[in-house]
Amino acid sequence: MYDAPNREMKVDQKTTKISARGVQVYYGDTHAIKDVDVDIEDRTVTAFIGPSGCGKSTFLRCLNRMNDTIDVCRVKGEIKLDGEDIYDKRVDPVQLRAKVGMVFQKPNPFPKSIYDNVAYGPRIHGLARDKADLDEIVERALRRGAIWNEVKDRLDAPGTGLSGGQQQRLCIARAVATEPEVLLMDEPCSALDPIATAQVEELIDELRESYSVVIVTHSMQQAARVSQKTAFFHLGNLVEFGETGQIFTNPQDSRTESYITGRIG
């Protein structure tokens, strides 16, 4: 990694990857996200925390326009990826999603072989020149997903036959196989047991070297463990955003303090 020496530098040295300004989201008549401003930095893990229904998942889905697939959902405001508005008419949401990958709450491998699951994205986007190239992409993605050693002997086995934790790491490998710049994770560990959770968290920490990772989580310990920046959402508002250590030790807002000490939730 060419930037490995820079890793010791602090987060303020990093460039902004995604910047959101005045984002409003409506589900039909419901105002789900109210005027959210946030800057997500490159090569950083940003955690979104907050009680259920606070809008953190909704906001996450705005970042790769997954909300477009929901008919009643409307998004206003400005979200820029590398300085370009992703809601601009000229932007193809399909291309955008290749750049901003997503991992979901429940592991959702396709009913295909492990190999085909990972090769799905590269095949669609034509990333491989030939079969050997594709093999290499798949292997690299599976290694990054920290699952290569477990599945290298059974790449033809169905992805649905793996255990829950393996399935989730397969889904992460599937997402990184398309070489995204940002990886969105919507509660990626909520369906996993503690051991699988630890493996996935370790993986997230490694992924930080190459990607900007945004993770939605219900577990404050998880946010504290894996993230450098934390955003606290409450009732559709972004209440507080800052260094993770700052948020958990010295929150500025009384609501943040109430939430992390367990008084509201």
């Binding site: 790769n64 997954m66 697939t69 399909v94 291309q95 955008l96 999603r97 290749a98 750049k99 990958g101 997503m102 991992v103 979901f104 429940k106 959702n108 491998p109 396709f110 009913p111 799905y120 994205g121 669609i124 986007h125 889904c171 599937r174 997402a175 398309t178």
Partner: peptide, 11 residues
């Protein structure tokens, strides 16, 4: 979830 997974990969 299958559709989401596929759309999420840019399909």
């Amino acid at each position: 979830a299958m559709r989401d997974g596929s759309y999420g990969l840019g399909a």
